[in-house]
Amino acid sequence: HNLTITQGKLFFHYNPKLCLSEIHKMEEVSGTKGRQERNDIALKTNGDQASCENELLKFSYIRTSFDKILLRWEPYWPPDFRDLLGFMLFYKEAPYQNVTEFDGQDACGSNSWTVVDIDPPLRSNDPKSQNHPGWLMRGLKPWTQYAIFVKTLVTFSDERRTYGAKSDIIYVQTDATNPSVPLDPISVSNSSSQIILKWKPPSDPNGNITHYLVFWERQAEDSELFELDYCLKGLKLPSRTWSPPFESEDSQKHNQSEYEDSAGECCSCPKTDSQILKELEESSFRKTFEDYLHNVVFVPRKTSSGTGAEDPRPSRKRRSLGDVGNVTVAVPTVAAFPNTSSTSVPTSPEEHRPFEKVVNKESLVISGLRHFTGYRIELQACNQDTPEERCSVAAYVSARTMPEAKADDIVGPVTHEIFENNVVHLMWQEPKEPNGLIVLYEVSYRRYGDEELHLCVSRKHFALERGCRLRGLSPGNYSVRIRATSLAGNGSWTEPTYFYVTDYLDVPSNIA
Rank of each mutant, 00 (worst) to 15 (best):
R240C: 14
M402K: 15
D261T: 07
K406P: 07
S283N: 05
C231H: 03
P338D: 05
K317R: 09
L277M: 15
Y212Q: 00
S367H: 05
S283D: 15
L505A: 09
S223C: 13
V214L: 08
Y230H: 03
S479Q: 10
M427D: 02
L379P: 01
R447M: 03
F499R: 01
M427S: 12
C267S: 12
V299Q: 13
S284C: 01
K317H: 14
G412V: 07
P300M: 15
H211C: 01
I366V: 11
E430V: 11
Y259V: 13
N208D: 03
P349K: 14
K406H: 08
N421H: 06
N339T: 08
H352F: 13
R218K: 10
Y504S: 12
F462A: 06
I276H: 13
G412E: 08
D273A: 13
F246I: 11
R370L: 15
S284Y: 01
Q275P: 07
W242A: 04
E389M: 15
L277F: 09
C266K: 10
P508I: 05
E310V: 03
V329F: 04
L464M: 09
S257F: 14
S367D: 07
G412Q: 11
V397W: 05
H352C: 09
P413K: 11
E356F: 10
K361P: 08
S284M: 15
P312D: 14
E217D: 14
G491Q: 09
S257N: 06
Q275K: 08
I438Q: 03
V507T: 14
P475H: 09
H416T: 10
G325V: 12
T485D: 11
L364V: 11
G234N: 08
S320H: 13
Q219D: 08
R446S: 03
V299L: 05
K361Q: 08
S444C: 15
S248E: 05
D261F: 09
P244D: 11
E260Y: 06
A336D: 15
S305N: 13
L455A: 12
L470S: 01
H425L: 07
F298L: 03
F215I: 08
R318Q: 03
I511F: 11
F226N: 13
V397Q: 02
D273T: 04
Y441H: 02
D409S: 10
W216V: 12
G491V: 01
K357F: 13
P387N: 11
L426A: 00
S315V: 09
S474A: 09
R286H: 07
N360A: 10
E290C: 04
A463Y: 06
S304T: 04
R316S: 14
K287Y: 09
G264E: 04
F372L: 06
K361S: 09
Y396M: 14
F246Y: 12
S363I: 09
P270C: 02
T343R: 07
D229A: 10
P245E: 07
A335R: 12
S458I: 10
T485A: 09
A395T: 05
Q219K: 07
S398F: 03
D385H: 12
R483N: 03
S458N: 06
T307D: 15
S243W: 08
F337T: 13
K236I: 06
S509Y: 13
N490T: 11
G322W: 13
T347K: 08
R353Q: 15
R301V: 09
E362F: 10
G436E: 03
G489V: 08
A394N: 08
I276R: 05
E265Y: 01
Y500A: 12
N490W: 14
G368I: 03
P312A: 15
E465L: 12
D506N: 15
A463I: 10
L225N: 09
P403T: 08
Y498A: 13
A399M: 13
G476K: 00
K287E: 14
K278T: 14
P387D: 08
D311L: 13
E417M: 04
R469L: 08
N339R: 12
C468Q: 06
Q256K: 12
N422M: 06
L280V: 13
T340C: 04
G308M: 15
L455S: 12
D506F: 14
P338H: 10
E433Q: 07
N383H: 11
T333M: 10
E290Q: 14
V424A: 05
A335H: 10
F462I: 03
E389Q: 13
E433C: 14
D409F: 10
E279L: 14
R353Y: 12
L277S: 02
L237Q: 10
E282I: 13
E351T: 14
E217Y: 15
D204L: 12
A336G: 09
L470Y: 01
I377F: 06
I410L: 11
N422V: 03
S363D: 03
Y441K: 00
W216N: 10
C382P: 01
K432Q: 05
S458C: 14
K271Y: 07
R313T: 12
D273M: 09
E420W: 04
F215T: 04
N383Q: 06
V423Y: 11
V397N: 14
E378L: 05
D450S: 14
S262H: 07
S257A: 14
A407Y: 06
V214W: 00
R286L: 06
I366N: 00
V424P: 01
K287G: 07
V331R: 12
P314F: 15
S392M: 02
R483D: 00
Y498C: 11
S304Q: 12
N255T: 12
A336R: 14
S474R: 05
G476D: 01
L426D: 00
V501C: 12
N326F: 08
F337P: 13
T415N: 03
V359R: 08
E290F: 15
A395D: 08
S398T: 13
H461S: 10
N477H: 07
V501F: 09
S341A: 05
N383C: 11
L505G: 13
H425G: 08
S243T: 08
E224T: 06
I418N: 12
L225H: 06
K287M: 09
K302C: 09
H371R: 13
G308H: 06
R469A: 04
Q252T: 12
A394K: 10
T401E: 07
E282P: 13
V424E: 02
G467P: 01
K317S: 12
F372Y: 11
S492P: 06
R240G: 14
Q252A: 10
R316Y: 02
E265Q: 14
G374N: 13
V443I: 08
Q219V: 06
R483M: 14
E404T: 04
D204A: 15
K406M: 11
V439T: 10
Q429F: 11
K302S: 11
Y478A: 00
